[in-house]
């Protein structure tokens, strides 16, 4: 009893540093961190609804402008070769292109927010300390995907309602909507991190995104036109979706590898 020193006078002996965690547990904690970043963003978004409101207002404005100004039901677009009235291939392609231009620019108006808001609120340094770079990247990517897919799922039905495409393959349209908007969000996440560190962010983001998203848009517009037109091309569109997914996987891998260079101070 007498050999025990009183706790108030002497600090306890320093503990040895814990051994570095095994790779598997580090990966697991990284996944947990990514999920935490995602949840943080989702919570603050659900409280303020800043990004979703901005995206939706932009998308609705563009959609209404397109619906009111672009002629999509003229003579040449609804007259089939046999003479009866219906949806020509030209009309299907035109509508698919319009739909994805609306979705692309709406995404461009809000997807950089995930990183820009951290720089503007000066919370980025804290986030750099709190989580591994990869966890930040995948957390933000997940948030952007959720945001853009939610917006697309709201906009596409309105588009169908207003512009009246003849949807021949509903399942394909749904697949193109979900995969296309998720792909747009995935490949532009690192660009959001880049523009957050630059000036003149809004205009720069769309310019940087153009070459990166072009393959996505080409495939998705093609597939959406096939969903409107139906028939054998929609088989081909399903195969092209595989190409889309591999492009996205390639770019996300590259982005994850490069992200630390952009994120670090």
């Amino acid at each position: 009893m007498s050999s025990t020193p009183p706790a108030t006078t002497q600090p306890p002996p320093a503990k040895p540093l814990p051994a570095p965690p095994a790779p598997s547990s580090r990966m697991l904690s990284g996944l947990g961190e990514a999920w935490a970043v995602f949840r943080k963003d989702l919570l603050s978004e659900l409280r303020t609804r800043y990004a979703l409101n901005a995206l939706l207002v932009f998308a609705l404005t563009t959609l209404l402008l397109v619906a009111m100004t672009v002629v999509t039901q003229g003579q040449g677009l609804t007259r089939l070769p046999g003479g009866e009235v219906g949806q020509t291939a030209a009309r299907a392609t035109l509508l698919a292109g319009l739909l994805w231009i609306i979705l692309f620019f709406s995404g461009m108006s809000g997807l950089a927010r995930a990183f820009v808001k951290e720089e503007e609120a000066r919370t980025a340094p804290a986030l750099r300390l709190a989580a591994q770079p990869l966890a930040v990247f995948f957390g933000k990517m997940l948030f952007n995907v959720a945001l853009l897919v939610a917006m697309a799922l709201l906009i596409v039905p309105l588009f169908v309602l207003f512009l009246k495409p003849d949807v021949k393959d509903g399942a394909l349209l749904l697949a193109e909507t979900v995969l296309g908007s998720a792909s747009l969000a995935c490949v532009t996440t690192i660009l959001g991190a880049i523009v957050a560190r630059a000036e003149s962010r809004a205009s720069l983001f769309a310019a940087l995104a153009f070459p990166i998203v072009l393959p996505v848009l080409v495939i998705v517009v093609n597939g959406t036109a096939a969903a409107f037109a139906g028939g054998p091309p929609s088989e081909e569109a399903r195969n092209q979706l595989v190409g889309l997914v591999s492009y996205v996987v390639m770019l996300v891998t590259l982005s994850a590898w490069l992200f630390e260079q952009v994120w670090r101070d």
Binding site: I190, I194, P211, I212, P215, L251, L254, S255, L258
Partner: peptide
């Protein structure tokens, strides 16, 4: 980073 991303695209 941007040059590499665009280079892959």
């Amino acid at each position: 980073v941007y040059a590499l991303l665009a280079g892959v695209a």
